[in-house]
Nucleic acid binder design. Sequence first.
RNA 1: CUGCCCGUAGCUCAAUUGGAUAGAGCACCGGCCUUCUAAGCCGGGGGUUGCAGGUUCGAUCCCUGCCGGGCAGGCCA
Length: 587
Amino acid sequence: MSADPKVLLTDLLQTALKSVAPELAATPILLERPKQASHGDFATNLALQLAKPLKRNPRELAGLLLAELPPSKLVARAEVAGAGFINFTLASDAKTAVVREVLARGADFGRGAGKGIKVQVEFVSANPTGPLHVGHGRGAAYGASLSDVLAFAGYEVSREYYVNDAGRQMDILALSTWLRYLAFFGIEIPFPPNAYRGDYVVDMGREMRDAHQDRFAKVTAMQILAGTPGLPPSDRKDDEAKQQREEHLDALIANAKKLLGEDYPWVHGFALNEQLGDGREDLQEFGVRFDKWFSEQSLFDTGLVERAVIQLEKAGHIYLQDGAKWFRSTAFGDEKDRVVQRENGLFTYFASDIAYHLNKYERGFDRMIDIWGADHHGYIPRVKGAIAALGLDPARLDVALVQFAVLYRDGQKTSMSTRSGEFVTLRELRREVGNDACRFFYVLRKSDQHLDFDLDLAKSQSNENPVYYVQYAHARVCSVLDQWGGEAAELAGADLGLLQNERELALCARLASFAELVQDAAAGYAPHQIAFYLKDLAADFHSWYNAERMLVEDEALKLARLALAAAVRQVLVTGLKTLGVSAPESM
RNA sequence: CUGCCCGUAGCUCAAUUGGAUAGAGCACCGGCCUUCUAAGCCGGGGGUUGCAGGUUCGAUCCCUGCCGGGCAGGCCA
């Protein structure tokens, strides 16, 4: 017998449909759980759907369907309501059966059957040029939770971090580190304003000195500055001054490469590994793990970037202009064409990104999800365009945009400038509010919504804090089961027919909707739905807890209630786990 | 100027993807601890879903036009 009432009702309706309107037997049967308890446990709009093609009154059709509906012991009541809905109320046996199922399946309750669909989720992918900040934190929390929800829903998930280890930004970091290192030997030039100025760069310089003494310091300030255009006055903000600063920086990088020679890759690699390692550790502490760290440099090393551009060229989507190679992305809906190879022969970031996505497709993922900061939204048409131009299906790629998080303290916005060096790092945020509150708050909003992150609320150990509210429900169950002291096996045989009051049946209905919710959250890339569900489940539990006692004299009733409590605990644990939040046994 | 996203209770946000009387939390008011954890519960007030049209049995959701806010528009990443 199918334990799933939804499947049963679908079958019953199918039968009724065939006899009422055989020509429309293919009409999809939608069953939803009404928001209002008075509308029963399930409702269908089938009659409303049929009304138009049959040109008949929906309420009348609903009545005909009801008349043809085969009877079932699990259905206590079925009635026409509203504009033509059919509402079903389940027999209480059918409602409470879920408790036994939760206890039997344990951590697997709610898990979707394997779909055999391979999904890759790429997220964070921050430049390893400094500490992760609170914006990356949201991408990390969202990506990790989404991945876990997808995996739990039955997809084969691969979590990936794209490491931008090639390109100018890394050179700037290497230069910055070297300059800080040199300062320890009294070799100093004015520190470029557009280089990386954070304290962590000074720390890396110090580490270099401690490990290698003056090995990289056999130069003079004069040599480093040789041939550079110099810096314009710091108060000049015009375009010409900005450009001169960039040229100055590039000249310094060129000098560093020349002066360090074979040591330059060492310095570059040192800075990269330090920052990448720091980020990896940061994320690991945050409960965020990746299956693969994909190197951008490897795309150049294996010649894939070149191959990707050649492939586009062969397909006729590349043209030459002003000495550069342009991809005709306007042919694929982009606003303007984009350069893939510069006049100086260097490939653009876009070129390696095309290669990266080509590589993803070649690895055979059925679906790919890129999680980007919302400021990159303009980048979507060109990437999808390039994928289409390569003869691949862009619909297999979804880009999920994550809006910025704004921190509030004492009702005031806190600054998160990345330039000044006073930006708030993910690590600082985690230390201040704790990993659990961090993870939960980050996914408490739809990802494409701006997030106001209230630091005071996240830290408060009070009923205002939704994290504690959910965790507290879990701790309460633990406490009661602990005081009972019996064996879990005793609960499996409890007489669930004794669960009869409204709050108990509501709790059962909530548990029964979990698997469906997981599927919805996965399909909509919406882990926030898990968070809201857990809040609702906790609320149902707290309400029941205050209204009824579990440890009552009546042995059978006690077991039934404890079984329900244990089932609630299991789903709380499962749900919190997908969000990366702990479930403490006492608080 | 152009493109994308957003606009829901005083505040922060949901709304089963087009469903029934639009829901929570905070804030405000009033109750509940000699009984399994009061980090909890129960009750109350609070809305023309930015505005104006359109599509249909039915719109917070889809289409058009305004108003307001955010982001983007490099041979940067």
